[in-house]
Amino acid sequence: MKAVLCRQFGPPDSLTVDEVARPQATPGTVVIDVKACGVNFPDTLIIEGKYQFRPDFPFSPGGEVAGIVREVGEGVSHVKPGDNVFALTGWGGFAESVLADAFKTFLMPDKMEYTTAASLMYTYGTSYHALKQRAQLRSGRSGDSETLLVLGAAGGVGLAAVTLGKLMGARVIAAASTDEKLALCRQYGADELINYTSQPLRDRLLELVGKKGVDVVYDPVGGELAEPALRSMAWGGRYLVVGFAAGSIPSLPFNLPLLKGCSVVGVFWGAFAERQPKDNQQNVQELLQFWQRGQLIPHIHATYPLEQAANALNDMLGRRVMGKALIVV
């Protein structure tokens, strides 16, 4: 079978497409013939050796897939060959087939497309866990909704946070780097918009929320936006540390959480899914219910064949992706 391979840590252009042996099912695992695989920011980190996990060489990037079950291992009963499924793999998804743990493999609902199924887990799974378990975002009653600021709001997890924040009853402020990206955020439910390349983030937030501040900050960006966002928090607010797409980990003045009585909260959805699988499965079921009701529709930026995987990752690194990019097989 064909697979995109990382043979040594490096940039996307160092990846190759080669023929490799198809994986075989072992107890508690499932072999999936991949139809679509999400492209996510962690994929750009894992091939450069900058992620929390370092697979043995050679490996394929790609942590969320949708496809057809080819084979199941001993002890697997909830899926069978021929079933349409989506799964978390961590890596290995940029290939024609992948081995997945059975407990991280889920049946696709009827009429769901593979591209949709491969767009749910990382972005919506991360954002829902962040807003539900970590921020405990509270829906307001007629006029007293909590305020949610989403940085990098047009990216994969950012746009998911905009959608879910609105569904959960928040007043959503989307912050992004271009008017084009903000227009997409508006389509997905943002109440207020901030172009932080044309106006300082803190100044615009003062116009929108005054001295009260923002109840929840969702930050997958880091970098220079982190401090003005933290300075703009409300008393008792929650600052969600989701990632560092800007490339730098900010050093924050920790007198600010003290003065504002706010919390800086880490969001590591992958560890949550491992440590609290029942809670994660409940989240997945609730996300599927949102989809079935037509409330959750992933925005597909572009699809790429295996041979163009490097282009997909470079587009991710260049912040050209709005919503979700996918490898299709």
Rank of each mutant, 00 (worst) to 15 (best):
G270V: 03
G270M: 04
G270W: 01
G270D: 02
G270H: 00
G270C: 02
G270P: 00
G270Y: 00
A271H: 07
A271F: 06
A271S: 12
F272H: 05
F272G: 01
F272Q: 00
F272V: 12
F272M: 05
F272P: 05
A273M: 10
A273D: 00
E274F: 13
E274K: 13
E274Q: 15
E274M: 12
R275M: 15
R275P: 02
R275K: 14
R275F: 15
Q276P: 01
Q276F: 13
Q276E: 05
Q276S: 01
P277N: 07
P277C: 04
P277H: 07
P277Y: 07
K278A: 12
K278V: 15
K278M: 14
D279Y: 09
D279R: 09
D279G: 10
D279E: 14
N280W: 02
N280F: 00
N280V: 06
N280M: 02
N280L: 00
Q281P: 00
Q281N: 14
Q281V: 12
Q281I: 11
Q282L: 04
Q282F: 04
Q282G: 06
Q282T: 10
Q282K: 10
N283V: 12
N283R: 09
V284E: 05
V284F: 13
Q285Y: 04
Q285T: 07
Q285N: 11
Q285P: 00
E286L: 12
E286P: 13
E286A: 13
L287K: 05
L287R: 08
L288W: 03
L288D: 01
L288P: 02
Q289A: 15
Q289F: 05
Q289V: 08
F290D: 01
F290P: 02
F290K: 09
W291V: 04
W291E: 04
W291R: 09
W291G: 02
Q292W: 03
Q292P: 01
Q292Y: 07
Q292N: 11
G294N: 09
G294S: 05
G294R: 06
G294M: 10
G294A: 09
Q295F: 07
Q295L: 13
Q295H: 08
Q295K: 12
Q295R: 09
Q295I: 08
Q295N: 11
Q295M: 11
L296C: 04
L296V: 04
I297A: 11
I297D: 04
I297T: 05
I297M: 03
I297V: 12
I297W: 04
I297L: 07
I297P: 01
P298I: 06
P298C: 05
P298V: 03
H299W: 15
H299L: 15
H299A: 15
I300K: 08
I300N: 10
I300L: 11
I300C: 11
I300D: 06
H301A: 00
H301S: 06
H301Q: 02
A302Y: 00
A302W: 12
A302H: 04
A302R: 10
A302C: 03
A302V: 14
T303K: 15
T303V: 15
T303I: 15
T303A: 15
T303L: 13
T303N: 14
Y304K: 01
Y304T: 11
Y304N: 12
Y304C: 08
P305Y: 03
P305W: 02
P305D: 01
P305C: 11
P305E: 01
P305G: 08
P305R: 07
P305K: 03
P305F: 02
P305S: 06
L306K: 01
L306I: 13
L306E: 04
L306G: 11
